[in-house]
Design a protein around this nucleic acid. Structure first.
Lengths: 295, 295
DNA sequence: GGGGCTCCATCGTTTTTTCTGATATCGTGG
DNA sequence: CCACGATATCAGAAAAAACGATGGAGCCCC
């Protein structure tokens, strides 16, 4: 049993046929058949049921498949590890929530690409669930998502802890005044913004079900809009100070606990962590220590 | 790059020479040299420094080595997984603390081997630290050890939670009376017993530094000895009832928290879990659910 | 029921890779 | 300077893999 055999096995299993696998692997069907039969003989177990439309995994084959894919991934990672001499280079593909990218990462990103021009940095945004799936399927090396995440294959480390606050025009003097309204207008950064869901949940809990939504691409636009009394928004306290200086706004803290949002960085436990990623995390995460205790 | 190449690479790295590796692999030196050079050409990186006494890993080689060993282990596990049709068989090697084995596992063990006669069960005992190392080095498939354990490669699940109590003869009416003594005699099951350390720590905290130790191989002997006023011992409350029936003894609960001891089952995250092990854990652990929250 | 289609199994041949054994080479230490 | 123990190289032998053609089983559709 060798990695080459497992690669063939995996292709046959995935494509459901030896002909299709042969085509994908740029070889001939007879070769695929022979290798599979050899593998079955070596393991002393049939791996596929043959039927007229192709093949289907047997129980033994189903047990083997995860190992085949893991070994293939390990071989790929091994190549990366050898090529990686400690100096960040190559491509780095990470994901983040839209909000995290805009509010927390942007400054790091520019300084990172400036310091490591040999790295091709790719940042993809999505919801927590999308990003988790992308990390699990190895489309991303890692991602910044909202805690809590609980998956045995994922390692997580603390990235940011934010205290959210509602931002309104000064005409609304406290949250109760806001909650007494039957309807509200909210201003969010982007449709998929995770803070938006949080804000909508919060208002819904207070009985405000009729919501109007405004969407702006920049923080400045949002803040200007809120200052003009056109709506309310939800932002991390840590960045409110820098964007509200030129405006007349009121910051409403949320009840204890409700405004707390934790961003964690996740990556597959079994995936290779490149120097490029290490360097990135060093600047973004306060501590690179494992955050098991936070699970 | 193939698993066979990595096996050769690993042997060369481990033995520090191509001749030695060739001998171990039952092949000739020229073959080993050729494969290594081929591998280096494919990876475009030198893997070994050649010197007059043999070879030494380069940085690139050092980065590759862990992948080589992991892939070898995965191949072995894959074979096991294919051979394992769900019915427990083959060998099962687990570790446990001496005390756990004697007090908690023995009944399970006999019923297990009775139900699954095809399994060759091997139970090795040792201290928590020894067992952890054995599991990490794959000499054990898993082990019952004292919490807390924190290692990124280890998965843990809750096994037992015990409340320990001090057992004395009725002449000692409460713990304070015991602690007032300048010295004490303790009776333990075996020298490496984890409860012994716990008991000694406890007494040391109370200023009792002069300890005499008695060691017996069976619970009955210990209990008899304690009943005779020859010393005190520390045992889980859950088993005290069954062994003290025939003796006149006093059970002293420990201050809240101090008597709590948690036993967890650990295994390598990346190791194969055989049906034999699964069946064993099903009977021993209350819940087979991941105990991440308990970390 | 039969023709056509798709699929896997088999076999002999060709091609490629791997293994081998002899020999060359290099550095070290006596 | 030479012996020793190590890796490097090379050509031939052996083994393994890939190929291409052919055969046979099952299914669909007519």
């Amino acid at each position: 049993m060798d990695a080459a055999d497992l690669r063939i096995f995996e292709a046959v299993a995935r494509l459901g046929g030896m002909n299709r696998a042969a085509a994908e692997l740029n070889t001939v069907q007879s070769n695929v058949t022979a290798r599979i039969r050899l593998l079955e003989k070596e393991l002393e177990a049939p791996l596929f049921h043959r039927h007229s439309k192709g093949v289907a995994l047997t129980d033994a084959g189903r047990r083997l498949l995860p190992y085949a894919t893991r070994i293939e991934h390990l071989l790929r990672d091994a190549r990366s590890a050898v090529a990686d001499d400690g100096h960040p280079k190559g491509s780095l593909t990470v994901g983040a929530l839209e909000t995290t990218a805009a509010l927390r990462l942007s400054s790091h990103l520019s300084s990172y690409v400036a310091q490591f021009p040999e790295v091709d940095l790719i940042l993809r945004t999505g919801t927590t669930q999308e990003l988790i799936n992308d990390v699990l399927d190895r489309r991303l090396e890692g991602a910044f998502v909202c805690a809590p995440v609980d998956h045995p294959d994922l390692h997580q480390r603390h990235a940011f802890r934010e205290e959210l606050a509602i931002l309104t025009s000064p005409s609304i003097q406290n949250l109760d005044a806001l909650f007494r309204e039957a309807e509200a207008r909210i201003v969010v950064l982007r449709a998929g913004c995770s803070y938006r869901q949080r804000l909508e949940d919060l208002l819904a809990q207070r009985g405000i079900l009729s919501l109007r939504r405004l969407e702006f691409g920049t923080l400045e636009a949002i803040v200007g809009c809120v200052a003009a009394g056109l709506g309310v928004t939800l932002l991390p306290k840590s960045i409110i100070g820098s964007v509200t200086r030129d405006h007349d706004l009121t910051v409403h803290s949320l009840p204890k606990g409700q405004g707390r949002v934790e961003t964690i960085f996740i990556h597959r436990r079994d995936a290779y962590i490149s120097s490029a990623l290490k360097a990135f995390l060093r600047r973004v995460c306060v501590s690179t220590k494992s955050a098991v205790a936070a699970e």
